[in-house]
């Protein structure tokens, strides 16, 4: 696979560059085309999946696509969702088949150094989590010394757990592995395992769909980091900067209390900060090649970051993932969702 990637990269480097010597920014292409081609997954609960009733894609990643379409083109419906898989997502960007990918992609050094893509700000912090049955009354990982942990076969979680045990000096804790998440979840339910461990978002989906979600507790501990970010083709700062600041704009909107409901009210505000942020008087968009009201449009379409999170992963959804006390909370509440200064 790595040889294939290398070859592919070579092909793109030679053919791709020689064919478009003065390649225009993707931003111009998108504006000219009038439609954003956005790569998402369609089998990832909470991030990009199909609502079978409406036939529409839903999820955090899908909402980010809509926000970008609204910010760049002024219309959240001007987006064409292109399904990408774990295997094809990088090639899809490298061959310009999609303008941007939001597909629960973990940000890692090799992905930015070896594959020529540039990542956007992290928009979700996933990680390996631990879930227990609420009846045993455990509140944190430290209380689980000597417990039986279960995870899926061949996953990284197995090694992560082993090193966690070593670090904590636990000698009696065991790891059992199961073929798939379904069996794993059944083993937790039957008491065969004291704790189940895999990605937090997956834990949330399984607990949320059990007949009685309150039977399970996801512990606040995170064993292994997995930050998700969108990405674009490398060396296109115009497009990347526009997207970075659209993402930051959604963060800032939450921090400043700009919601879908209060948007119209805030637009009438005398506060020069809101006037500029929302593009009522002046604005930040022009220098990025965006309309000045791009944050206003994005928030009008999908809401601020907090609203996107609530819609897809909040308490009313079937895959509720607690936001408070995790990196996914705003920095003002101790999280890691932070926007630079808008000034």
């Amino acid at each position: 696979m790595s040889l294939g990637k290398l070859l592919a990269a070579g092909v793109f480097a030679t053919i791709g560059l020689s064919m478009n010597p003065a390649s225009a920014s993707v931003l111009d292409t998108v504006k000219e085309r009038g439609v954003l081609h956005c790569g998402t997954d369609n089998t990832a609960p909470g991030f990009g999946y199909l609502n079978t009733k409406t036939g529409q894609l839903e999820g955090l990643d899908v909402d980010f696509c809509k926000a970008v379409a609204a910010a760049v083109l002024g219309d959240a419906t001007k987006v064409k969702f292109v399904t990408v898989t774990d295997k094809s997502r990088f090639d899809a960007v490298l061959t310009n088949q999609v303008d941007v990918v939001f597909a629960h992609t973990t940000l890692k050094p090799a992905r930015e150094s070896a594959i020529s893509v540039d990542f956007l700000p992290i928009n979700f912090y996933d990680g390996t989590g631990i879930m227990v049955k609420s009846e045993i009354g455990v509140k944190s990982l430290d209380e689980l010394d000597g417990a039986t942990f279960c995870t899926t076969q061949g996953s990284v979680t197995e090694t992560v757990l082993a090193s966690a045990f070593k670090a904590k000096g636990w000698t009696t804790s065991k790891v059992l592995t199961y073929e798939n998440l379904e069996k794993l979840f059944a083993a937790l339910g039957s008491g065969r395992c004291d704790a189940m461990s895999t990605d937090k978002s997956a834990l949330a989906a399984w607990a949320g769909n059990s007949p009685n979600p309150s039977d399970y507790v996801i512990l606040p501990d995170t064993l292994d980091k997995s930050p998700f970010a969108g990405f674009v083709v490398a060396n296109d700062s115009k497009w990347r900067n526009a997207l970075r600041w659209i993402t930051y704009g959604l963060f800032q909107a939450e921090e400043s209390g700009v919601t879908m409901a209060k948007l119209d009210e805030l637009m009438k505000s005398d506060d020069p900060f809101f006037q500029k942020l929302l593009g009522v008087n002046g604005g930040f968009g022009k220098d990025f090649g965006l309309p000045d009201d791009f944050i206003q449009q994005a928030v009008r379409a999908v809401g601020n970051y907090g609203e996107i999170y609530e819609r897809n992963l909040g308490p009313d959804t079937t895959m509720y993932l607690e936001r408070k006390g995790t990196p996914n909370a705003l920095w003002t509440e101790g999280g890691a969702i932070y926007s630079p200064l808008w000034n």
Binding site: A44, P45, Y49, T83, V84, G208, N209
Partner: peptide, 22 residues
């Protein structure tokens, strides 16, 4: 592999909806 949703993948897409994962 190239992001198309054939019959089998459509089934998986339905199952990906947390409501139906069981």
């Amino acid at each position: 592999i190239i992001g198309l949703t054939d019959f089998l993948r459509a089934g998986q897409m339905v199952l990906a909806n947390p409501q139906y994962s069981d």
